[in-house]
Amino acid sequence: MPGELEAVLADYLTRLERAPLSAESRRTYASKVRQYLAWLAAADTDGDPLADPAARDWAVRDYRTHLVTVAKRKPATVNNALAALDDFYTRRGLGPAAADRLDLPTSPRRSLPQRAQTRWLRAVAQEPSARDRALALLPFYAGPRIAETVRLDLDDVRLSARKGELRLLGKGGKPRWVPLHPELRAALAAWLEERRTWPGAQENPALFLNRRGGRLSVRGARDVFARIADTAGLDAATAHDLRHTFATTLVRGGTDLVIVAELLGHARLETTRGYTRPSAEDRERALDLLPVDR
């Protein structure tokens, strides 16, 4: 990347560091903008896309086309890149580019079928670590994003004799309180008791610690989920799959969409409505209702 674009990136990273975003969002934005600037260095653009609004719009649209036709990126990945570029240009004082988002496929969210849910819970119960048991049950019983989970501090957990609630910081630092399911409450209580013996327990406010006494990272948390999925004999059971399972279970159980949206930290009800779409299993069950004559 040419030196002038390296300077542009460095300036953006400095501004991004002061933004009220999660560490995960900052890393994602930084990566997406770095890729865009690298593309910009070799692209044949009209005008100066870093100073002229019209040239900005043309360049971002051309980059969107590049991601779709050359890089073969999925619509959600392209839209994430466009969101990062909106942030980049806004912090440069030009404002978001006039570039439409791609339509996302209307397939249902990935959630675990009933049998896989049982296998997951049984694998979690076999975990010797109280930390990993609590971590694995969080998205299943409370639905946080993985970045929200590792961002939890001790003060974000409130436990009483029979109840409890969790304070989660969503996108943009927006807080929400989620009541604790009894199984999750018991798992968190067990972890808080065991946590006292871990390195960093007195100095670090993080709810989930790593073995060195630091805050558990997103990567470290993903490793835990992958290991438990392997124990359960599941091809994949990510924290996001479990979040989807949490939401799908509530929606199909008749919970009001507004309540589900609040629990998930969705800003738009339309996002939550995606959990009402039928799955392949739903379609198969529908066919089972048809009579046969043999």
Rank of each mutant, 00 (worst) to 15 (best):
L257C: 05
R64A: 06
T106V: 05
S217G: 04
W198Q: 15
P75Q: 05
T197K: 13
L102Y: 01
G164V: 01
A247E: 07
H244C: 10
A187V: 09
H240D: 08
T248S: 13
G170Q: 10
L82S: 02
L9S: 00
P113W: 12
V33N: 04
P179Y: 00
E194M: 09
R18D: 15
R277G: 08
A221R: 04
V70A: 08
R133T: 11
R215I: 10
D48V: 02
G254D: 06
G172N: 11
D241P: 00
E24K: 08
R167C: 06
G3H: 10
E281Y: 03
R15E: 09
T276L: 15
S31L: 07
H181A: 00
D288Y: 01
D223H: 05
R18I: 12
L257E: 03
A190C: 08
L94S: 03
D48G: 04
R131W: 13
P49S: 05
T14Y: 09
E262D: 15
A10D: 11
M1T: 12
A201H: 12
A54E: 14
L209S: 10
S217A: 03
L168R: 06
R283N: 00
R212L: 12
S279M: 07
A142N: 01
T28Y: 02
W198R: 15
P2L: 12
Q117G: 13
R56Q: 08
G200N: 11
L5I: 12
E6S: 13
R110Q: 14
R285L: 14
E193Q: 11
T45E: 11
L216I: 14
A130E: 15
L5E: 06
T197C: 05
W177I: 15
L168A: 12
V150F: 11
S160W: 02
A76P: 07
R15D: 06
P108F: 11
T238S: 12
Q126Y: 11
Y89W: 10
R110M: 13
